[in-house]
Amino acid sequence: MSQAPLFAREMGLFARFGVYALLSLSLIVLDARYASLGWLRTGLSVVLDPLQGLVAAPLGWTHSVSQFMVAHNDLIRTNTRLVRERDALGVQQQDRQTLQAENDRLRALLQLPPSPRITMLAAEIVRAMPDPFSRKIIISRGATQGIEAGLPVIDASGLVGQVTQVSAMTAEVTLLTDRDQGAPVQDQRNGVRVIVSGTGSDNLLEVRFLDVHADLKAGDLLYTSGLDGLWPAGIPVAQVLQTEPPKHTPFARALCRPLGQVGQYRHVMVLKPHAKGAR
């Protein structure tokens, strides 16, 4: 420990606090208004990510140990179920390929541009962000695997969210349930186009500004419309729970249940469009 000087030759406590407060406030303004601190964030997260991995490692070990102790019967049962599911999926896949080929031919006949091809990158959910202002998760793929900000993220049952920040080995996904997140969707039944947004709650989405006469009923399935040019069309997003008549505003409101299940799966898929011209 260093020797404390007899007479302190330094700024007073409150003056020092003033300097640091000014510094933090300018950082806050820079980040909130101009979003110009990405480099600092990426730099610090390069240090933090390995630490995070270190801490999460024991949890991974307990997981693998408990998997090792699984009963033989369970394994056989799961295996039979999976083989059956794979066979069913194989049939669907063949069907899909024929449809895709037919679709391509029809689009060519109509002289429409071919629909964009996408690849799927599987990623593991590392952790949920403790952020009181938004709902985010961290996934285990980053810029080195070709993840970019803006790519959509789905799981086995539907749309989960969107990549909002990328560091070298991890990426931050803002969930669809975040209040600032939204997705342009289309009703599967009649093609009505609306925008669903998050409410901040885990299992509720809403259509905020719904036309009073819009034909949206409880039970309708909403799929991405692909109109934003960002997310491919046809990803299941939500199911309408109920519509509320307008109360104090000229607009009605519809409540929906998100189809993507963030809490249940450890893995998600990031959809990456192919480069132009490449097939």
């Binding site: 510094l23 980040d31 909130a32 202002f133």
Partner: peptide, 9 residues
């Protein structure tokens, strides 16, 4: 950075 909130908050 670890919590992904505004820098400086």
């Amino acid at each position: 950075v670890a919590h992904g909130v505004l820098m400086g908050l």
